[in-house]
Design a protein around this nucleic acid. Sequence first.
DNA 1: CCAAAAGTGTTGGTCGTACACCCATGC
DNA 2: GCATGGGTGTACGACCAACACTTTTGG
Lengths: 240, 240
Amino acid sequence: MQEALTQEQIFVTVDIMALTVQDGELKLLLSRRVRPPDQGRWALFGKLIGVEETAETAAKALLEEMLPVREVFLEQLYTFSDRERDPRGRVISIAYLAVLPWKELQGVLSAGDPKLRLFTLHADGGGLRLGSPDGTELTGEDLAFDHGTIVETGLLRLRGKLHYTDIAFHFLNDTRSFFLSELQGVFEAVLDKPVDGSNFRRAMLGRYVDTGRMVQVEHPSTARRRGRGRPAALYCLTED
Amino acid sequence: MQEALTQEQIFVTVDIMALTVQDGELKLLLSRRVRPPDQGRWALFGKLIGVEETAETAAKALLEEMLPVREVFLEQLYTFSDRERDPRGRVISIAYLAVLPWKELQGVLSAGDPKLRLFTLHADGGGLRLGSPDGTELTGEDLAFDHGTIVETGLLRLRGKLHYTDIAFHFLNDTRSFFLSELQGVFEAVLDKPVDGSNFRRAMLGRYVDTGRMVQVEHPSTARRRGRGRPAALYCLTED
DNA sequence: CCAAAAGTGTTGGTCGTACACCCATGC
DNA sequence: GCATGGGTGTACGACCAACACTTTTGG
């Protein structure tokens, strides 16, 4: 006979830190809380996990609640369990990092829900700096609960993983047709500093083209013009 | 008025993957389960989180239950939430990685509790291989619950962090008096492959001695003899 | 007892890769 | 103005060779 488990109630939630790159800037999707606690503050998306859900599936479900069905990059970040992180009780949060192409979000945001907003995300030196087009400037402290801490953790993780994983590609609107400069723009937005084009090109060509994971699909000379400057080559990510 | 939370009962536990290096081999501390489910199988240490505990403090408390009070390296690994991971119900586990100097464990193990055992840990290619001095050979599948998965995750994380963190030092019996070869032994045990002594020395001297985080405390010529071969220099980790 | 061998610690070099930084060229 | 390519210097790891100092071995 196996014993039954007994434990005082602990609530378990998932929180999603949804990121995208728009206009060369890293942006974080936040929602304004409409009720206490922390009413009126900006927060990550979160929900309680159902008994029939894993943390993964709960996070996916939460994302799909607001986005058209589509596969997005989702990765577990860290689990936060400070006693005072939620005044409603003992709430443990499993935080996830989501990476979205800007085009995915465009539709959702153009609906004009004032409770949803994209904030530019910077973290030079001490803390976070969040900005919105209407001039609002926030720090990590201004976010609801411990969400400032979560965002800091996520940003560090993202920056680290940029170099040795394929995570940057998930920011692209179309992985089957993009310029290297677009990819470079993602790197620059995430790292929040300029990247040397020459080295970047060499690195990507060596890491992806030489291994067949990426191919040039259109030669610049045959392409239609796309704005100023020398036409760029189009690349396509191959799936395997 | 803030709403009360309601959620069907989900249990939250911490599980600890405790590692040490002994005789040039990476070893994992496991305990044999004395009751169902998975009775008789080897498992990580785990316990339910109390309402007054954070995951961190719960993990620390669990470690101290079996070890003399002392600070050990402890780091959150990942949170596992598969629905079928525990037949007793909906149990989510926050897994922690603990790094212990062999000398810390020696006392506990010499007590002779047959429910505790150190297994050598290898992971070449496909899966895990766990070995014990009595000839027992296990794979990840043989462990209780999903603990095989947890151990794989932890090992990958440890190997990655070895290079850009100070985690290796936590395996040392005495961080105030050690040989570089001992530290190199830790690297070789964790990575499970030989490490070039020349580069290792250069890297450590550059990374730690030149920055003042490590100092040579005894010149070989003035040292008492310590076995065969050329006498080695003693180093000491400075705290800051 | 002494000399050679074997084991361990330490230092040095070369080579290829990768990145920072700069400059040149094509369109 | 932007995309692309080339070149130099530096840092670091893989791999190799030599040397320093000790214990062990065996005549």
